[in-house]
Amino acid sequence: MARSQPTDPPIDLQAAVRGEVSWFCCGTAWGPCSSTGKGACGTCNSGNLQHAWPNTSDACWAITRPDSCGFALSRRTCGFQHRITALCSGTSVVTSIADCGPQTDLFCGERSCCGATCATDRIIDLTPAAYSRIASLSTGLRPCEISTP
């Protein structure tokens, strides 16, 4: 089956977009993370302020398929910066792209809330260093807003 990006304007070019944020490990690491590697950009480290984005390339898009959840996220390549704001705390962090992910299509429809403030679908993953700037690692998953710095 041929897969291509939708032609509609990507929503994150028009305004900030809301979705779920989680965290992942990369680079040299311990435990189940030890085989993870440096990510699609070859630069990813758990201790760096970095993130994974679902549309870093055609190959990446073919895996993550955020369009299947209704997201037309634009192509952003290695090193591009986003600001991620936790909707629970209001705290934000600016990070750069270091990997492809998350696999948005596998969690379509999932929703996270802080009180009455909610966000649906996974559209970004942060390194532990970045996530722990805006939330405790023990929360695992949070609603957030993503914008450009």
Partner: peptide
Amino acid sequence: APDVEPGAPDPDFAEG
């Protein structure tokens, strides 16, 4: 937290 260049190691974070 102090500003850290996006993409750079965070000096206020450690793993190991």
